[in-house]
Design a protein around this nucleic acid. Sequence first.
DNA 1: AATAATGGCAACCGCTCTTGG
DNA 2: CCCAAGAGCGGTTGCCATTAT
Length: 292
Amino acid sequence: MGRAPCCEKEGLRRGAWSPEEDQRLVVYIQQNGHPNWRALPRQAGLLRCGKSCRLRWINYLRPDIKRGNFSADEEALIVRLHRELGNRWSAIAAQLPGRTDNEIKNVWHTHIKKRLEDGDDGEDKKKARKSKLAAAKRSAAKKATDVDADAVDNSEQHQPFLTASPRLSSSVSSGMTTFSTATDSAAAVSSSADNAATTSHQQEQQQQVGAISKAETMEMETSFSAAELFPPIDDSFWSSADVMDMGLAAMDEELGLGLADPLSSSSTRDEDMEFWLKMLLEAGDMRDLSVL
DNA sequence: AATAATGGCAACCGCTCTTGG
DNA sequence: CCCAAGAGCGGTTGCCATTAT
C-alpha cells in the first residue's frame, strides 16, 4: 500500500509550539472542528504538518484534558489495563477520562515500569535507591534550613504537569485566572470557553493552575511583557506565511483574529489574554465541539 | 563551580488501519 | 476488489531541567 508523505516537510515549522500557534489551532478547531487534519494547517494559517496539529490538539489543547499527577488509583488502573491489553495505549487511555495515550505511555515508561521493575532487584537498582536515599537526606536537610524555598519546590515537584513546558515557562495573570505555561494557558482558555459544561476535571485543573501560578508568582514576583509571553516568531515563519495561498491577515480576518503581525502589537499581555478569553467565550458553538 | 549523568516530557517518525472512490 | 489518502497508533528521539560527582 503506497503511502504519501504525511506533509510537505519544507517550510513547515517543527518542534515546540508557540502560544500563537496554540491559540490559532484552538480557535480554528473550536470554530470549525477538524474534519480534515491534512488540510487544517493551511486553513488555520499554521505552518505545521497536519499530524503535528492533530497531536497537539489531542494531547494538549483539547478542553477536556486532565492535567496533574496521576493518582494512585489511576496508576493502579494503568498497571491492570497494561497487564490485560499490553502496549495498546490508546485503549488504556480510553479507560482514563482526560488522559491521553501519549501521557500514559510517558508515565508508564518513566514511573510505573521502573517501579514494577524494582521488584527484581539488581545491584544497580540498589545503588539507585541508595542514591535516592542520599538525595532524600540532603533534601530533608535543606528543608530544615530553607522552609520558604521549599514551599515553591514542593509545589513544583508535586505538579510537574503544570510546568509541562519548561521551555516556555512563565507566569502570567490574565485578570480572570493565572496561567503558568503556554500549554496551561491554552488549556485554561479552552476551559473558560467550555465554562457552561465545566467538569470536575476542569475545575481541578483550574485550581491546580491557580495553585502553581501562585507559587511561581511568589517566587518570581515579576511581571512579563506581551513580547515575553508571546515571543516573536522567527522571521522565516512569517515571511513564509506571507506567500501562502491564504495569507495570515486574510485568515485572521476570517477568524476574527488579530495575529497577523504579532511584532506590531503593542497590546499588553493582559489585553491579549482578555482578548482571547473574550473571543473564546463569544464563540457560542464551541461548547458543542468540546467533546471532540 | 564545572561537568556529567539522569529524568521527564513534548514532539516526531513510520507503520498499520480505515474509508471512500 | 483494488488502490490511494487520511487518520490513528506505538515506538523513539531530542531537548531542557535537575541531580550527582
